[in-house]
């Protein structure tokens, strides 16, 4: 029931902002090593879902489990209570989050950005953390930017560094909230490439994205959200085969990419 076989499972999750219901009875399962893409129109609750999973927002009802461990709450002397700040932080550290705006710490060099989590949260010795950080930066091809400040990197480089920072805690799950939406078109590719490498390496990932062709090529499952609910969920084939007159079909048509790109016709 707690979804032991799953890295992540969300059960009947509800989130409200005042009267607005941002998430309405959402169920989501993410299996080990799988990639789940979340798509849907603006305001449908995609970011809210990612932020609730990552415990950046507290849910109002339902439950979320990471490796079977309840997130955000604990049982204490028979009562269910919200977790204390320290324990919440420990849980957050088990998940990596990549934001649309990169959010690298502007007063730290790239290397310092990467070691902050491991040294401050996980208690890894500085030398060891630095070694690992350098290896990660090599993996996202930023070895020459180790001592640079974020301001002096291009958007694509910043986002790759942000991915490396999220990986530094060795998370069980990586969450991406529209990681390429703030990038110039010519920089999107280098970030998607890094994400594709991660997926190929077996990382469990949840990706909120408007990049339909990327979702189609990399995701194992695609989740379509609308008005705070998961309306449809399936393999890329099932999702992109939606009848054009359905709500999903109409959303895909307005998103363009998928139905008109040459690879789509090749794959079918």
């Amino acid at each position: 029931m707690t979804g032991d076989s799953m890295v992540l499972s969300a059960r009947r999750v509800r989130k409200q902002f005042g009267a607005l219901v941002a998430l309405d009875d959402v169920d989501l399962d993410v299996a080990e090593g799988s990639v789940v893409a979340i798509i849907g129109p603006s305001g449908s609750g995609k970011s809210t879902l990612a932020r609730c999973i990552h415990q950046l927002e507290r849910i109002d009802a339902g439950a979320i489990y990471l490796d079977g461990e309840l997130l955000g709450f604990e049982h204490k002397s028979g009562k269910l209570l919200p977790l204390r700040d320290r324990d919440l932080s420990r849980q957050r550290a088990q998940m990596g989050m990549v934001f649309q705006q990169f959010n690298l710490f502007s007063h730290y060099t790239i290397l310092e950005n990467l070691i902050e989590g491991p040294t401050r949260v996980l208690g890894v010795p500085r030398k060891e953390a630095e070694e690992k950080a350098r290896a990660l930066l090599a993996r996202v091809r930023l070895s020459d930017k180790v001592d640079a400040y974020p301001r002096h990197l291009s958007g694509g480089q910043q986002q790759r560094a942000a991915i490396a920072r999220a990986l530094a805690n060795e998370p069980r799950l990586m969450l991406f909230d529209e990681p390429t939406s703030a990038l110039d078109p010519e920089l999107v590719g280098e970030v998607l490439e890094v994400m594709q490498d991660l997926a190929a390496g077996g990382m469990t990932m949840v990706i909120v994205t408007h990049e339909m062709s990327f979702a189609r090529d990399v995701a194992d499952r695609i989740v379509f959200m609308e008005a705070g609910r998961i309306v449809k969920e399936g393999t890329p084939k099932e999702i992109f085969g939606a009848p054009p007159e359905s709500r999903l079909g109409r959303f895909l048509a307005t998103s363009g990419v998928a139905l008109t790109s040459p690879e789509a016709t090749l794959a079918d």
Partner: peptide, 16 residues
């Protein structure tokens, strides 16, 4: 605001 969020996201506590 994103700086605060990123800090919480990597697991820093409120005071940190």
């Amino acid at each position: 605001k994103g700086q605060r969020e990123a800090a919480r996201a990597i697991g820093l506590t409120g005071p940190q």
